[in-house]
Simulated scan of single mutants.
Amino acid sequence: MEDTIVLKPVPEAIKSARDHVGMIASALHMDDFIPRLIVSELAANAWRHAKPDDHIIVRAYPLHGRLVVEVWDQSDEMPVIQHPDVTQEDGRGLMILSQLVFRWGTRPVAEGGKIVFAEIAV
């Protein structure tokens, strides 16, 4: 099973990322709800910060009893957990993500951009 897909930065990329990671989670015999939710947030953030000619790369694979989900985008802007007030409609995704995963983080990529990853217990 292919663990990596390359997507154009369009709204439909979020569904494609979600379906891809859901398929991998199912192949590992794990509930796919959390992996789909996590990659939806990461892919949405990548899409939000992408330029029209960028790509979003989504990768998911098992490692040491966890499912690792990675999203690489070409923006150098690092994600930050926000603490929005009740009147804001967005800004909660990374805060929620941080509560659902074993570990998450970012790393810059030499080619430009960054990888945001999350490790989910299988």
Rank of each mutant, 00 (worst) to 15 (best):
E2C: 08
E2N: 15
D3S: 15
D3I: 08
T4M: 15
T4P: 09
I5L: 11
V6Q: 14
V6L: 14
L7M: 11
L7H: 03
K8L: 15
K8E: 15
K8V: 00
V10Y: 09
V10H: 14
E12M: 05
E12Y: 01
E12V: 00
A13K: 02
A13R: 03
I14F: 10
I14A: 08
I14E: 13
K15H: 05
K15M: 06
S16H: 11
S16G: 02
S16W: 03
A17N: 10
A17T: 01
A17D: 02
A17K: 01
A17Y: 03
H20I: 00
V21M: 07
G22F: 03
G22A: 07
G22I: 00
G22Q: 04
M23T: 03
I24G: 06
I24R: 02
S26W: 07
S26I: 02
S26A: 11
A27I: 02
L28E: 15
L28S: 04
H29A: 14
H29K: 15
M30K: 03
M30W: 03
M30G: 09
D31A: 09
D31F: 00
D32C: 06
D32S: 12
F33D: 10
F33S: 13
I34F: 04
I34T: 13
P35C: 04
P35L: 10
R36P: 05
R36S: 09
L37P: 05
I38C: 10
I38H: 09
V39G: 06
V39I: 05
E41T: 00
E41F: 01
E41G: 04
E41Q: 14
E41I: 03
E41W: 05
A43M: 06
A46P: 12
A46N: 07
W47D: 11
R48A: 14
H49A: 08
A50M: 10
P52A: 02
P52Q: 01
D53V: 00
D54W: 01
I56Q: 11
I56H: 10
I56E: 13
I57C: 09
A60V: 00
P62H: 03
L63K: 13
G65Q: 02
R66Y: 15
R66G: 05
V68D: 12
V69W: 03
W72P: 06
D73N: 14
D73K: 01
S75G: 07
S75L: 08
D76E: 14
D76I: 00
E77C: 08
E77G: 03
P79S: 02
V80Q: 09
I81H: 06
H83A: 11
D85W: 08
Q88G: 03
Q88I: 01
Q88W: 12
E89W: 10
D90M: 14
R92H: 11
G93K: 04
G93Y: 07
G93A: 06
G93D: 04
L94F: 15
L97F: 04
L97M: 06
S98N: 15
Q99H: 13
Q99T: 00
L100N: 04
V101P: 13
V101N: 10
F102G: 11
R103G: 08
R103F: 07
W104G: 05
W104E: 08
G105Y: 04
T106R: 08
T106H: 11
T106N: 12
P108Q: 05
V109C: 13
E111A: 15
E111V: 02
E111M: 12
G112E: 04
G113P: 09
K114M: 06
I115Q: 07
I115S: 07
V116D: 09
F117H: 09
A118P: 05
E119R: 01
V122W: 11
